[in-house]
Design a protein around this nucleic acid. Sequence first.
DNA 1: ATAGTTGCAAACGTTTTGCAATGGG
DNA 2: CCCATTGCAAAACGTTTGCAACTAT
Lengths: 140, 140
Amino acid sequence: MAEHFYSSEGDALLRAADLRITRPRQAIARVLSEARDHPDADQVLRRARRHDPSISQATAYRTLSVLTESGILRTHTFDGSATRYELAERPHHDHLIDVETGEVREFVSREIEALQARIAAEHGYEIVAHRLELYCRKAG
Amino acid sequence: MAEHFYSSEGDALLRAADLRITRPRQAIARVLSEARDHPDADQVLRRARRHDPSISQATAYRTLSVLTESGILRTHTFDGSATRYELAERPHHDHLIDVETGEVREFVSREIEALQARIAAEHGYEIVAHRLELYCRKAG
DNA sequence: ATAGTTGCAAACGTTTTGCAATGGG
DNA sequence: CCCATTGCAAAACGTTTGCAACTAT
């Protein structure tokens, strides 16, 4: 057990998803729990390989899939480019983007959420997820 | 000029984009001007081939690109799936996406729009554009 | 005439999958 | 032990591109 790394943070993700704890998954989960950005699969793989160089691309994709299905991760697809991942643990929020500076603010509106649910219901649907982005300019 | 089809609707798109009027492009533009859904490149190609079976995939993609760059078309990338196209001229609306079938419904909610404006104002902003997508499943 | 456009096929980047070998519980 | 998990390589997927032939203007 000598040169073994403990990544309780990461392991917690695996346990939450009811996955067997394996070396590749530990490395991947650790990378995710430490990430402060929104890495894509390739970035996750690269970083995970710093901990365990033998990790295959397939395992990275498979682990990301499984963690996403378990609700541990959330994905974003910005404009057709590669899927990016982040921990889903953070509370839900929408984004207000300053089109001039690129600054992003987060907000939640209970009223909007309620209206969304109503609209979905009117169409005979229930909401699985949603995305709301406001592109704004500082008011004159 | 015998069995020639007139697609003034479609041709107008091509002229607006300053493109040479060719048979493949006429078929593609016609399909787009007639579409009531949000077809992806492959669907556009299939439909265009009903008018001109010799159209290649490459031409479909190239025409869609060029029309998009000209501002004639607008694209949507719903959660990692194929890029979908619609005429940019159409009035604003938001989207409800059936996560099981990929079907897209359009909706507008004056209340939500108003709330969005209020939220932006509370942050000292005014809205330039927004995007609202509801990913839904048919209600049990 | 000539620059723009085409079809074909190959290449692309991302993601998925079949398989036999490995390893966690 | 046994089934989940792995690495590998090949395939699948949507999309782009190089090229030589063609065509709208």
